[in-house]
């Protein structure tokens, strides 16, 4: 077991110093006995994948777990494959899944049979924000400018790019259509990074990218954020583009667009796992949240740093599911078989 690892760590022993302070003995009795698997129900490079891989790196670097962490992508059927795998791994204490909104949208849109109730909730790590972006060459300075222009033109004059079909980006687009009373043409792409580049290249008129997907283009003066789909401004004051910081972006509600949407970045486990194991992972995640790398990731991506566990988390998820059901029904995105 340790042979290969030793070979790998030769020459890099230096980094081991100074990290022991963090690895205090865990309070509970349960300890993983095999490598811990994190299932990502999406492809490599997306937001969920990046977060899982960052956590893998943080746990390894700070020696937070005796066992290694393995990240596995199971993206088939809009993530349905990954969720089914977890649902069917009853009692496996070494398996976790990181979720994005497809936890709710995939079973509704495709009819693949799973629900969050088939799994054990562990913890909410953060909520991902959504921002309305336009190309910086366009004359729109505020969300109101853009909305007014949409309203003054016929249906389908504006192209909205987003990730996937019948998922979070399209849900927001449908809500925008409701708010403006005009139809937009929604064009689905594979990933958020691609959408941002298509917007820079002026192939679409706007996007609802997550902050981390578009921040580089904002800093370079290619994209302009109009408003954030949250009930309050983002809580990051550091200057990013010129004099602007994340908290300079107004909420969409204040601009007359009453649309709110946040995306869950949280963990679940298979059904029937031991409570001690769940407690171990909650403790592990708390330690992860204390590391400087995690804090950096949070501020780079302007995440909403809500952390929830246990019943509070389960209740949040149940509410979110209801919300999605309403949105999906209204948009006509439910699978016919349901």
């Amino acid at each position: 077991m340790s042979v290969a690892k030793t070979v790998l760590t030769i020459g890099t022993a230096a980094f081991a110093s100074g990290v022991f302070a963090l690895s205090a003995l865990p309070a509970n009795a349960w300890e993983p006995s095999h490598p811990i698997e994190i299932i990502v129900p999406a492809g490599t490079g997306g937001g969920a994948d990046q977060m899982a891989r960052a956590m893998q790196g943080i746990i390894t670097k700070h020696n937070l777990s005796k066992q290694s962490v393995v990240v596995i992508n199971k993206s088939g059927g809009a993530g349905g494959e990954g969720f089914l795998d977890v649902k069917n791994s009853k009692g496996n204490d070494h398996k976790l899944i990181i979720t994005l909104s497809n936890l709710f949208t995939t079973p509704m849109a495709t009819g693949i049979p799973f629900s969050w109730k088939d799994m054990t909730p562990v913890a909410m790590m953060a909520l991902d924000e959504f921002i309305l972006w336009v190309n910086a060459d366009k004359p729109y300075k505020t969300a109101k400018d853009y909305v007014d222009d949409i309203k003054s033109k016929p249906d389908n004059s504006f192209k909205m790019g987003g990730t996937g079909s019948k998922q979070e980006d399209q849900i927001i687009t449908v809500a925008l259509q409701k708010a403006t009373g005009k139809k937009m043409t929604y064009i689905p792409y594979k990933g958020g990074g691609e959408v941002a580049v298509q917007l820079v290249g002026n192939h679409i008129d706007s996007s609802v990218n997550n902050p981390i997907e578009a921040v580089a283009h904002w800093r370079a003066g290619k994209l302009r954020p109009l408003c954030v789909f949250d009930n309050k401004k983002l809580d990051y004051h550091e200057k990013i583009a010129g004099d602007l910081a994340w908290d300079s972006i107004p909420t969409c509600k204040s601009a007359g667009l009453d649309v709110e949407y946040l995306m869950l970045r949280g963990y679940f486990m298979p059904p029937g796992v031991s409570p001690d194991a769940v407690a171990y992972y909650v403790d592990l995640f708390k330690k992860v949240r204390e590391t400087p790398e995690w804090k950096k990731l949070m501020s780079d991506g302007a995440f909403n740093q809500s952390f929830m566990t246990g019943d509070e988390y389960a209740k949040w998820v149940a509410d979110a599911e209801k919300l999605h059901e309403g949105l999906m029904k209204e948009a006509g995105f439910m699978a016919k078989t349901n």
């Binding site: 490599t44 490079g45 990933g191 921040v215 580089a216 283009h217 370079a220 990731l297």
Partner: peptide, 28 residues
Amino acid sequence: SLGVPGSPTAAVLLGGLLIWGLQPGPLL
């Protein structure tokens, strides 16, 4: 320069850039 990975390998590499505190993009 655009922050769009062309392959899974590039995606993991891109994730690495973020962890080292570098932001892929035109300003890099």
